[in-house]
């Protein structure tokens, strides 16, 4: 097997005295879709934010594509990466947020072209052509010039996905991408995500959409209280949970 895309070994994260992650071990292979399930406060979102170094981990090792996140190892000492280096690595990891976080002062097209032009130095016209292509792909061919406030939640989230894809990421992180959406708008976003999975994108998805997990995930991880309670194929974890906590959680959401 080649190097896993994401590898976590005993990852701990504290906020002040509150320990949110208490030793996470997991691996995501390239091209794999992993769904993180669990009650709120279980540390799923925090773990996701650690993967692109929006949060610093306190102990353990976390690497993406064979390279440590946020640090460089020289001998047996870790050196913090410079801001520009951290930024360069983040540019290779796409992230989609629960509340979309589209840039409110830019049109849909502006949102999608912004980072490629600014961070990757791609020519404006080239970036715009690619952005149009991506917006068409997520089903928003007629909304290029709309501002986020003029779009529905589902449309905003699809722009956000296009924005992340415009950086040609090797890994996509989804932080409860459908939790803030009206039920009738969830389907469109999930369709786009299924398409990505089919195209072989490596994805880590924090979600409460059990149907999506069952259908798309290669591996499902159930977290609670800052630890991985159990993991396995969706059939195993969702249909035959071995742990009491998993069973209790699933009985509430299914």
């Amino acid at each position: 097997m080649s190097e896993p895309m994401v590898k976590a070994e005993a990852v701990h994260k504290r906020f002040g005295r509150n320990e949110v992650l208490k030793g996470i071990d997991l691996e995501v292979a390239a091209g794999e879709v992993m769904c993180l399930l669990g009650p709120s406060g279980s540390g799923k979102s925090t773990f996701l934010r650690c993967i692109n170094h929006l949060e610093k981990i306190n102990s353990g090792r976390l690497s993406v594509d064979g390279e440590l996140v946020g640090y460089r190892q020289v001998g047996d000492r870790l050196h913090e990466l410079r801001e520009a280096e951290v930024a360069r690595k983040r540019a290779e990891i796409g992230m989609v947020f629960q509340h979309f976080n589209l840039f409110g002062h830019m049109t849909a097209l502006g949102n999608v072209t912004c980072a490629p032009i600014l961070v990757k130095g791609i020519a404006r016209e080239q970036a715009r052509a690619r952005a149009r292509e991506l917006l068409d792909r997520v089903g928003l061919g007629d909304k290029h010039d709309s501002y986020p406030a003029q779009l529905s939640g589902g449309q905003q989230q699809r722009v956000a996905i296009a924005r992340a894809l415009a950086m040609d990421p090797k890994l996509m992180l989804f932080d409860e991408p459908t939790s803030a959406l009206d039920p009738e708008l969830v389907g469109d976003v999930l369709e786009v995500m299924k398409g990505l999975a089919r195209d072989g994108m490596t994805m880590v998805v924090v979600t409460h959409e059990m149907g999506f997990a069952r259908e798309v995930a290669d591996e499902v991880v159930f977290m609670d209280g800052g630890v991985v309670v159990e993991s396995g194929s969706p059939a195993d974890v969702l249909a035959n949970p071995r742990h009491e906590r998993t069973r209790a959680f699933l009985s509430k959401v299914l």
Partner: peptide, 23 residues
């Protein structure tokens, strides 16, 4: 300005200065 804006900008690979100036 909502903190999520800076999160999104940084997740796209913008530096602190770029995030401040552009977003």
């Amino acid at each position: 300005v909502d903190e999520g804006q800076a999160d999104a900008a940084r997740s796209l690979g913008m530096t602190r200065l770029q995030t401040m100036r552009r977003i």
